[in-house]
């Protein structure tokens, strides 16, 4: 842990990291994640995959909500679009997965323009509602256009084969997800330290002031929408492949909420937080399961058929308690530890 380190020049501020240990640890993490598929059983691996896909999708939302301050309650709409944009050409018309992934990104990005345009006029919650409305309308259209989407029947999606590699096995698929998640993470980090990224932050913090500084609000907001939708669409495609079966029901409204939960639990506005948040939210139900099973069979009997609902209650309570004691999210917790380290024993 480094202490007393201050950034004095712009270059230091915008470089991904100027700290050798950060680079080293990141490398260890990447190696560990790359090795994980070979070491974990399929069950544990599926959590890794789920975390990677979730983090990718949440990074998409992060670009919009965390960085630009535009709240979206309908991000599941982009996921759904991405999943279908992949599934329809690949599974239904037998096109290459490359086409599928390209469409999974671009289709939501194009549609996001339609959603983004109203956003130029609306603020805060009113914008959130249009995105919510949009996600319901998308779901409705997907169900109605059954000639293209198979309607409520859904589409079976095979694992892709690209670069001559079959991603049929869980290990290969996990690697694909790792690859996409890493690219996305670096992409987002890069956007953040670019001119565009700083402009987006300015829009978030004070859009009127940003405008007076010559930032073209409308263009930037739209760009944020499109990038966000693109990334989420790719995540949607991966999720569809993971599910192996794409239906509207596989993308419930709750996913939009969970995506927001990830950002908030992680620490709104922090990219690192998105990763933390994804891990937390994906693993939380599992923790509840383990906790209850530790109580043993007697507890299960005590609650009879209610044991599972009890777990659900615990899940909700965990979220409430977490926010109650750490409203700044996991990154806040992380920052506290770091500050304690740096400043100890002199507090001021």
């Amino acid at each position: 842990m480094r202490s007393g380190h201050f950034k004095e020049r712009t270059e230091q501020l915008i470089v991904l990291s100027d700290s050798a240990p950060v680079w080293a640890w990141s490398a260890v993490l990447v190696v560990a994640l790359a090795a994980a598929p070979y070491l974990l059983n399929a069950y544990l691996l599926s959590f890794v995959v789920l975390i990677l896909i979730t983090a990718t999708g949440a990074l998409g939302l992060h670009l919009l909500t965390g960085r630009t301050g535009l709240i979206s309650l309908g991000h599941v709409g982009f996921l759904l679009l991405g999943a279908y944009a992949y599934a329809v050409p690949v599974a239904k018309y037998g096109l290459s997965p490359f086409v599928g992934f390209a469409l999974a990104g671009t289709a939501p990005a194009l549609v996001s323009v339609l959603v983004g345009i109203p956003s130029l006029r609306l603020k805060g919650l009113y914008l959130a509602i249009t995105t919510l409305a949009f996600s319901f309308i998308i779901a409705h259209l997907v169900l109605q256009m059954s000639w293209l989407t198979n309607g409520a029947r859904g589409i079976q999606v095979p694992r892709p084969e690209m670069f001559g590699i079959s991603f049929d096995s869980d290990i290969r698929f996990a690697q694909l997800c790792l690859f996409v998640a890493t690219i996305t993470l670096f992409g987002v980090l890069n956007i953040e330290r670019s001119r565009v990224g700083r402009a987006l932050m300015a829009v978030r913090d004070n859009d009127i002031a940003a405008r007076t500084m010559g930032i073209n609000l409308q263009a930037y907001k739209l760009r944020a929408f499109m990038t966000s939708a693109f990334v989420s669409g790719i995540a949607g495609a991966l999720f569809g492949i993971y599910l192996s079966f794409v239906t509207v029901e596989g993308f419930p409204f709750l996913m939009s909420i969970e995506a927001l939960a990830i950002l908030i639990v992680g620490g709104l506005g922090s990219t690192l937080g998105v990763v933390f948040g994804s891990i937390f939210i994906v693993l939380l139900p599992e923790v509840g399961r383990t906790a209850l099973s530790l109580l043993g069979e007697n507890a299960a009997k005590l609650f009879s058929t209610g044991a599972n609902e009890l777990r659900s209650v615990l899940y909700g309570v965990a979220i409430i308690l977490f926010l109650r004691f750490e409203p700044r999210g996991l990154v806040g917790l992380w920052g506290d530890r770091k500050r304690l380290w740096v400043n100890w024993p002199l507090r001021f």
Binding site: L260, I264, L310, G316, I319, L323, G329
Partner: peptide, 19 residues
């Protein structure tokens, strides 16, 4: 964070009803 708490509350109330 506070809005998120109401979402957590929703989960709790929903499950509690079934419980």
């Amino acid at each position: 964070a506070t809005v998120m708490v109401t979402i957590g509350l929703a989960v709790v109330l929903r499950s509690a009803t079934l419980l």
